[in-house]
Design a protein around this nucleic acid. Structure first.
Length: 605
DNA sequence: AAGAGTCAAA
């Protein structure tokens, strides 16, 4: 590459899509060619910006240090980009140094630099210092407000965020969106929605933020509603919109909607970046269509660890343990990605589903360390589940005793499940008393265990305790997609306008999946049988993961429902449905909303 | 030439 024509190179450096490798090439070229000092500052600033925006922002500092002479007299842009590098590298020390030099050269009153420093304080979690700077600066523009409001929101201090928000003289869409996202992160979707509705002008980012707020708060149906509304208003979705909506489809198991998005983004020539690729792979896996997930994955030009993780976890979730582990092997061969915590959740899950004790042991004790991955509660849950399921109850319990973090309820439940499976009453009682210390126990499981070893008196005792505590079987909820429309359905609700169609669809899906497990699930859904009968019907399949339809338990007090995407969770030994079913804190509000259907655009031919 | 807000995997 020649450095004869400077302007395109500057443009190249400023473009976020220029790969880091190319930046380095340009860097080398720039150093080779001796530019006249007057024009070179511009290019060196551009280089600096490119480094500051790269995945390794601290390269900016080394570049600045080695090429210091070329920056003969740094200007405000130089400092601006150095501050950007400091913020992205989360380096307060660098920021302070840059700030000092900028003061010496007389840039103290530059608003861009003040805001840059403010940003550094915020991303480093120094909200008190940030606030002090903010209060001292005479020229606070809206960017300064947005920056510190974002800082407060990120740190969970919505009170301070709100009080500043009320002082912004002229809030812009960025200000509103910052508040919206903060409210959403605090779990306050209705506040987020109020902000969204109050925004004088909503741009695409604001729509994306609101859609995302719904997804992140386990309300994917409303996310899809909003997406439809957005299109009705002729707003063109972008990559971000599409990735968010795909995750909503994945969460609710909306396959047709997900396919529609897939067609949409191909037709509109969206670049399949790792974000979109991962979202597609995940959506197809969660909808149980593994071959489409694989097809998308193999055709992706860019993959990152999330993409690999989506597939490895997706295969494991779908019970394809060997394929999942094969993919993991392939990932290890790919030099451009490294396995992380999430990868190993998938790997251990696969071992657990496949009953691969040796392989699980190897990964848990060795591979994880090889790649410097921290063991999370999820990893412990998987390995304990694997051992406990295979009858290695002692080893499973030993792992729990040696955990550097206190065992959570999920790990204990995994062990308890093994106790039940292998009829170890003593250990079960021990585990259960520990679970009670966490404020929860699994009495249904204990009662089943007593029953399985014929200790009927104990069964009665446990049932008595359950009755006394008001514990009863809790109902579930579901959604189902028929003709591009998602219906929410309460199991056994024969007055549902689509009752007949829903039953037909369930039967059709049962036939399509055509394995005993799925059929049993379908049957359970059709006849509205209870948990115990379902377990009977499922037989040995209840030990495996199943994706289909069935009954699900969620919050006490909500009606029994059919759930789509039903799967058996090895970690917690419970049946669960789509993510949004897991948390339903808005029972009252949900009654107010029209929850029966989501219209979707017809799938293009 | 640049600063603030939105996206994927458990």
């Amino acid at each position: 590459m020649r450095v004869r024509c400077p302007v395109p190179i500057a443009a190249l450096l400023q473009s976020p899509s220029t790969p880091a490798r190319q930046v380095k090439q340009i860097h080398a070229q720039l150093l080779l060619h001796d530019h006249p000092p007057r024009s070179s500052l511009f290019f060196f600033n551009s280089m600096l910006l490119a480094y500051a925006s790269s995945p390794n922002p601290s390269d900016g500092f080394s570049f600045f240090a080695t090429a210091r002479a070329r920056f003969h007299r740094p200007n405000n842009f130089t400092f601006q980009f150095l501050l950007k590098a400091s913020a992205r590298a989360r380096s307060l020390a660098q920021a302070a140094q840059v700030h000092c030099s900028s003061l010496k050269l007389g840039f103290g009153s530059y608003t861009f630099l003040q805001n840059g420093l403010l940003k550094c304080y915020c991303v480093c979690g120094r909200l008190v210092d940030a606030r002090q700077l903010f209060d001292e600066v005479p020229s606070r523009d809206v960017v300064a407000f947005n920056t510190i409001i974002h800082g407060y929101a990120e740190s969970g201090d919505m009170g301070s965020a709100l009080s500043l928000f009320e002082q912004v003289p002229d809030p812009n869409p960025v200000t509103w969106t910052t508040m919206l996202v903060g409210s959403s992160a605090a779990g306050n979707v209705s506040a987020a929605r109020r902000l969204f509705d109050s925004m004088p002008e909503k741009d695409l980012v604001a729509w994306n933020a609101m859609i995302s707020a719904y997804v992140q708060n386990h309300r994917p149906l409303e996310a899809l509603h909003l997406f439809v509304e957005m299109q009705a208003r002729n707003l063109k979705p972008n990559q971000v919109t599409v990735a968010t909506v795909l995750s909503a489809c994945a969460a609710i198991g909306a396959l047709d909607a997900g396919k529609w998005i897939h067609v949409y983004l191909v037709k509109n020539k969206f670049r399949l970046d790792p974000f979109l690729g991962s979202a597609l792979v995940d959506m197809y896996c969660k909808c149980g269509i593994v071959h489409l997930a694989l097809e998308v994955f193999e055709n992706l030009r860019e993959k990152n660890s999330c993409t690999w993780n989506a597939l490895i976890n997706g295969l494991a979730m779908n019970g394809l343990a060997e394929r999942s582990l094969e993919m993991f092997e392939r990932m290890l061969l790919d030099q451009s990605v490294r396995p992380d915590e999430v990868t190993f959740v998938g790997v251990l899950l696969a071992c657990s589903h496949g009953g691969f004790v040796e392989e699980g042991r190897k990964h848990f004790y060795h591979t994880v360390k090889e790649y410097g991955v921290n063991l999370l509660p999820e990893h412990y849950a998987c390995i304990v589940d694997l051992f406990a399921r295979c009858g290695l109850l002692k080893e499973a319990e030993d792992i729990i005793r040696c955990m550097p973090i206190p065992p959570d309820i999920v790990v204990l439940r995994a062990l308890l499940g093994g106790c039940r499976l292998h009829k170890n009453v003593d250990m079960a009682e021990r585990v259960l008393s520990e679970m009670e210390a966490h404020g929860s126990g699994d009495y249904v499981l204990l009662s089943n265990l007593y029953a399985s070893v014929g200790r009927w008196e104990d069964v009665e005792k446990v049932r008595g305790i359950m009755k006394g505590m008001g514990i009863k079987k809790v109902p579930g909820c579901s959604s189902i997609e028929i003709n591009n429309t998602i219906h929410e359905f309460v199991s056994g609700d024969r007055s549902h306008p689509k009752y007949k169609e829903i039953l037909d669809k369930l039967a059709e899906l049962g036939r399509k999946m055509s394995t005993d497990g799925y059929l049993a699930e379908t049957t359970a859904a059709l006849y509205d049988i209870d948990e115990e009968e379902k377990e009977e019907a499922l037989g040995h399949h209840s030990e495996k993961l199943a994706i289909g339809f069935g009954l699900i338990s969620t919050e006490p007090g909500t009606p029994l429902r059919i759930v789509k995407n039903l799967r058996f969770c090895n970690d917690c030994h419970t049946w669960s449905g789509s993510k949004d079913q897991a948390v339903i804190p808005h029972v009252e509000k949900e009654k107010e909303r029209n929850r029966n259907s989501v219209p979707h655009q017809p799938t293009p031919a």
